[in-house]
Design a protein around this nucleic acid. Structure first.
Lengths: 142, 142
DNA sequence: TTAGGGCTTGACGCGGACGTCAAGGCAAGC
DNA sequence: GCTTGCCTTGACGTCCGCGTCAAGCCCTAA
């Protein structure tokens, strides 16, 4: 199988495969015309890479899985190095979700506060003599 | 106040301030030597930018807040456009946290499965005639 | 014969928010 | 006078995972 077919079967592009090869993640035999030639095992490697990429793993983080498969294992995560990556990623995801959740709450609080402030301005405006709300080109301070 | 002092007071760098200026977020007067000269109001603008940046807002997303302050409002989020950014960001954060949480669960599941598989191999190995686990340079398949 | 499609390598582009270096002006201290 | 330190503009580098274009070879169908 050549590069275009493998790429299509894995749902990616030939450019990506050449990139993986340059990174040392994927190798290929060459036929007499210099074209890359792949086997079914390469499809397994590629599927492993794509799955982890879809999870948000960096390319370098897929390397232990690829090497595990190349070592003859049926699953890319049958090796200790792969498990270590899983665990590290879980910790990263937990930390990230924690941070994002904290930011989310802070932003939500800011939004509530700002909405309350707008409401109070509106209430003042409804009383005779109140100021005007809105930001439509008020005063350009350069 | 000149660029270095303002940057230090805002906890950022002169390079960042020039970048904001190039993006049209921050402006500065020039003294007779061509140096940028800032006032206290610029510190307010800069603090607003930095706060939102720390929240993970893109630079363009801080623009409504900056313009709100420049329009004379005491708070950068006193304007409808700023509130819209808040709401959009909340939705983005919710979506992102949801995706990351789903990935986290999938990865956790993969880890449990892989650990179980390793455990089963270990159990077989403890029985006489079992195979060897581990991946330390087993067989290089090129 | 020509058009078309797939393959090759090499090299630049992208996005975002700057970092870093180059080359030079301006002022203060020793 | 010289060094140090702040400022100026301009321009290239960074990171990552490719996209895209260029120039050219190989084969096939019309």
């Amino acid at each position: 199988m050549r590069i275009g077919e493998l790429a299509a079967r894995a749902g990616t592009t030939a450019r990506a495969l050449r990139y993986y090869e340059a990174r040392g993640l994927l190798s290929a035999r060459r036929d007499e015309k210099g074209y890359r030639e792949y086997g079914e095992g390469d499809l397994r490697l590629l599927e492993q890479i794509r799955t982890l990429q879809d999870f948000g793993f960096e390319l370098e983080e897929t390397r232990p899985f690829v090497e595990c498969l190349r070592a003859g294992h049926l699953e890319g995560d049958s090796c200790p190095a792969s498990l270590a990556v899983y665990r590290r990623k879980l910790a990263e995801l937990d930390a990230l979700v924690g941070q994002l959740t904290a930011v989310r709450e802070t932003v939500a609080e800011q939004l509530r506060r700002a909405e309350r402030a707008v409401g109070e301005l509106a209430a003042e405006a409804s009383v005779p003599g109140g100021p005007e709300p809105g930001c439509e080109l008020g005063g350009q301070l350069s």
